[in-house]
Structures are given as structure tokens and as C-alpha cells.
């Protein structure tokens, strides 16, 4: 059975989706990620979807689910590298990926995660870059 590899980097989990997902793969990713968050006590999850040419409502829901599930396990999720065409399509479809933060690329995503996690230790800052 194919699986999407999940990499661990310090407090973060890193997922790069390189192939077009079919449904089983996506649901597997969802459960694997949640397991990993639990096991590694990760504080942040970064999902790179720059290679995805299609995000439909199912995939969007999986991303949203991962975001909400991680949230209640005390981890932030950032989706990075969305293609412009994908963003336009998602909006047209009516999906706004609520509960998931977004960033332009992996670098920015990392910065955003660090900022967010850093803000736990210090007094909470208002997060203007978030997507709520």
C-alpha cells in the first residue's frame, strides 16, 4: 500500500505531497499524520501541496480535517505552496480551508509555524497572517 512519507524536523512534521492523491491515500495520510502528531508530540504540521494540480472538495476536507484534528492535539497546521489555479478553483467551489494556515512556500511556512509556536511561550500575539 502506498503511503505519503511524513518527515520529522524538530518540533515539526513535514509532509510533501508529490503525486496526485486518490481517496484512500488521502485518508491514510490523515490518520497517519494524527498518529504521528500524537507520537512525536509535534507542535506544528507543514503540508506542501505545490505539486498538486488538483484539490477537490474531498482533498480540501482532508486538509481541513488534519488542521482541526491537529489543533485539538495542540499542533498548528500550515498548508504551503498552493498553485494559483488551485486557489481560484477552491474559492469558486466554495472552500476556504478554514482552520488551516497558509503560506507561500516552505520557508515562509516554517517562519509562520515558529512564530505561532513561539507565541505560546511568550504572551500571545495577534496572528495577522492567519487565514481565519
Amino acid at each position: 500500500m502506498d503511503r505519503i512519507p511524513i518527515l520529522r524536523m524538530g518540533h515539526f512534521l513535514l509532509v510533501t505531497i508529490q503525486i496526485d492523491l486518490y481517496d484512500r491515500l488521502a485518508t491514510n495520510l490523515e490518520s497517519d499524520l494524527v498518529q504521528m502528531v500524537n507520537k512525536t508530540e509535534a507542535k506544528g504540521v507543514l503540508i506542501d501541496i505545490s505539486a498538486l494540480s488538483i484539490v477537490d472538495s474531498f482533498m480540501g476536507r482532508i486538509l481541513g480535517n488534519i488542521g482541526s484534528m491537529s489543533k485539538i492535539m495542540d499542533a498548528e497546521t500550515v498548508v504551503v505552496g498552493m498553485q494559483p489555479a488551485v486557489a481560484i478553483t477552491l474559492i469558486e467551489l466554495g472552500l476556504e480551508l478554514k482552520g488551516v494556515h497558509t503560506a507561500l512556500n516552505v520557508e515562509r511556512g516554517m517562519e509562520l509555524l515558529k512564530e505561532k509556536i513561539g507565541s505560546y511561550d511568550r504572551e500571545p500575539e495577534d496572528d495577522e497572517d492567519s487565514t481565519e
Binding site: P84, I88, L90, E96, T102, A103, D129
Partner: peptide, 13 residues
Amino acid sequence: IKTVAATRLMGAE
């Protein structure tokens, strides 16, 4: 509103 939402999905304000 759509344009703004799409920009946010990309990770920009």
C-alpha cells in the same frame, strides 16, 4: 471577496 479569499489561500494577505 473571492479574490481576497484566494489570496489568503495562497498564504498572502
